[in-house]
Design a protein around this nucleic acid. Structure first.
Lengths: 208, 208
DNA sequence: GTCTATAATTGGATAGAC
DNA sequence: GTCTATCCAATTATAGAC
């Protein structure tokens, strides 16, 4: 399967294609690829199955469109550019909190699950997600650590490695727990504590 | 679905049940739950489909048996008890290497993928895996860090948190990359470097 | 573009003979 | 316990009318 591609002509929001995409998004994120039928999507979008096929040539293509759409929407806004590398503890706490808030969001966890589960069948979709998500976030972190190294607030011999380790500490065990559904959706106190722990350990290892 | 349970009577290794289980293991780990049919499993085990059903009451049950079996076999041997908490750098390197060797093994990555992908349908299987794998490994690490704290080689205010952070640093980005199949199966040099980096950062944060 | 109706195939599970 | 043959439900995809 290649990169998702609409079949019908241009169409504004509120059109059938949007409705179908939104219905497919809900269904796939909630139940996965295999457990969702085109019938179910058509039903949820209140259109006929033939109409679904008029807009998307196959179930695989519709799936690809959903993945690309959600990835872009969720990760597009993540940035560390506005943060001050001098006030390092506060900035790291902010960024860790934003990071966790994003990667632990139920929708993002669901997206992770579905892509990981189908990576054998749809390797390109995993690439799309990876580039839009983890890679983009790592680049943002990396740029921040480069600035912090230059400002002398942190000792950063390898910005990329620092970014990876910071992200790893932030994810900690809690991210895996989310993927394996070992606990309820994470509340904000747990999230704050996790962020603070990650920052504390990271600072002990990298502070000037 | 509950914990897997054989249907047929006692049977030694080399019996049909073993053959079927092995075939199902190969198939599920390679292609996931949804993409594998009972026909395919029967074919790969060189028995009829009716024979498969004589030993396992349903596809779900067979799947559960596979997950429990592989989890136990792969994680059962992980231990940190023999390691010396005084020679801390060497011990941590050993344990990080063992840890990565295990969690990055293709079979274990495949197991992760399949469980994460089906966690919505089979939450109990995720629990079985979690207890046999991540939880067991964390307990081993935690016990080691408790000893290291007592020996005075590390400063460990919270052994459990230390264990989680060490595991997180070891997994780093490389584990996620494996799950999303962003790169080829990890070779042993990459693995050694990842282990060394994790240990170095951890020591800067926790060494006495 | 959208619908109803249906084709074509697959897949989980079982009946009945041995 | 094991096989062959089959049932039945579900699913992807399309034909043809409007």
């Amino acid at each position: 399967m290649s990169v998702p591609q609409r079949v019908a002509g241009r169409e504004g929001p509120g059109g059938k294609a949007e409705t179908i995409l939104a219905a497919a998004e809900r269904a796939f994120l909630a139940r996965g690829f295999g457990a969702v039928s085109m019938d179910a999507i058509a039903r949820e979008a209140s259109v006929s199955k033939a109409t679904v096929y008029a807009h998307f040539t196959s179930k695989e293509e519709l799936f690809g469109a959903v993945i690309a759409h959600v990835s872009e929407r969720r990760f597009g806004g993540f940035s560390a550019e506005a943060l001050d590398p001098v006030d390092i503890a506060a900035s790291l706490t902010t960024i860790a909190t934003r990071f966790l808030d994003l990667v632990l969001a139920p929708e993002v966890i669901a997206l992770n699950r579905i892509i990981i589960g189908e990576v054998t069948r749809f390797p390109v979709l995993a690439q799309v997600f990876w580039t839009a998500g983890p890679e983009r976030m790592r680049e943002q972190l990396e740029a921040f650590f480069r600035r912090a190294g230059a400002a002398g607030t942190l000792v950063i011999p390898d910005p990329r490695q620092a970014a990876e380790q910071f992200a790893a500490l932030a994810r900690g065990e809690i991210h895996l727990r989310g993927l394996f559904r070992v606990e309820e959706p994470t509340d904000s106190t747990v999230l704050s504590v996790a962020a603070a722990n990650a920052v504390a350990t990271f600072l002990r290892a990298f502070q000037a």
